[in-house]
Amino acid sequence: MMKTLLEIKNLKTHFFTHEGVVKAVDGVSLKVDRGKTLGIVGESGSGKSVTALSILRLIPQPPGKIIGGEIYFEGQDLLKLDNKEIRKIRGKKISMIFQEPMTSLDPVFTIGHEIIETIQLHQGLNKKEAREKALEILKIVGIPDVEKRIDSYPHELSGGMRQRVMIAMALSCHPTLLIADEPTTALDVTIQAQIIKLINDLKKRFHTSVILITHDLGVIAEMCDYVAVMYAGQVVEYAEVFTLFEKSLHPYTQGLSKSIPRLNKEVEKLQVIPGMVPNLLNLPPGCPFHPRCSYNFEKCRSENPELIEIEDSHLVKCHLFTEKR
């Protein structure tokens, strides 16, 4: 079996709006190994979610369109599949959980109904068998009293329980890839800790690969094997998690890491990245980070650097490192 499960090459997803073209994802390349977790971290508007939605071809079209690139999943380019073929992959081989467990479950159906429907659709089981399966998976994700809870409506459950149901639904067909978009952001810290542990445990149990999208470096440190840092629609650094936290190279990654207050470290003043995230309608020329970068020089203002491999599995998109080579 191939080690790489998913490989994205030079993905470009643009949105064609009245005000102009929003280059939400503009040349993203990534890969996810089997059984591993890739974290995608970045601030709002950096293109993390659009990258994830592009994998499943869930970009609202119009205004959005995948205008270039390849997404290889188990050796097959997902962007070349027709609608019928991609539908077989969605929910079965690749499934997704979203940030808002409140809005991503249909309020008029019981949670059992939704999970049973998924199982029936993808596994061709009859209703009774599917219900058995649903009970089993709900038990695995830690829903108490499943025989009763399976007939509950989403509003009868707490936020943490709803997220567990979402996870149960996503895992019901044993996908090879789980995409989790900010799965713990809407939850309280004590509940977040429960869900992080659950996803980590299930990943090992089912040998599922995970793409975790978050803005929280703490969650990244807790869950991921590899990390891609995104800024303005591009991956600016990609590294193994320990490398990223110990010897990050890109000025944005370094700035991000210094700008968060930490429990285990005392600092008088937080270091800040000056300015703000650029408007995607009107990106600065050259490297999109250069107006906020303290190292910027002539070339940064005119030429967008390539993402290059510095060491084994450590890639950086910055002229500071292209120059040295």
Binding site: V189, A221, F242, N264
Partner: peptide, 11 residues
């Protein structure tokens, strides 16, 4: 419960 941004503190 707070996730610490340091993978060595994991778990």
């Amino acid at each position: 419960a707070i996730p610490i941004p340091d993978p060595k503190m994991r778990g």
